[in-house]
């Protein structure tokens, strides 16, 4: 039988995959995609908790409202982030994080 724990573990594994990608990859676009994956993994945990915490016989829609806000903020973040990546590529001609070291001091 599928329990809340199953959903939480899938969510945790997806988050861990995204985290591994952020640490291991050097292409800044793929790092960005992995960030999106981590956000979605957190959404899965929230929706899971929402379904299994009933209030008056219905799912707890506070959690799903939070997911709605997360998705909105993520969409805005993608737009701004990709614009920054394009600006970065214009000056550096690269999307490799080992080339972009200006802030390293």
């Amino acid at each position: 039988m599928i329990t809340l724990g199953h959903y939480l573990i899938v969510s945790g594994m997806l988050f861990a995959l995204g985290l591994a990608g952020v640490i291991a990859r050097r292409n800044i676009l793929i790092i960005y995609m992995c960030l999106e994956m981590m956000l979605s993994a957190a959404n899965l945990a929230l929706v899971g908790f929402s379904r299994f915490h009933l209030s008056g016989g219905l799912p707890d829609y506070t959690a799903q409202s939070l997911v709605f806000f997360t998705i909105t903020v993520a969409a805005a973040e993608v737009a701004v982030g990709l614009a920054i990546i394009v600006a970065l590529f214009r000056t550096r001609q690269s999307v490799d994080t080992e080339v972009i070291t200006k802030l390293q001091g």
Binding site: M1, I2, T3, L4, G5, L8, I9, G12, R51, F52, H53, L54, G56, G57, L58, P59
Partner: peptide, 20 residues
Amino acid sequence: VGHTKLAEKTPLNVPLALMD
């Protein structure tokens, strides 16, 4: 997740009660 009772909820344990 393995140590908490909360995670053992299944959809059958907490059915939606639309009529209620």
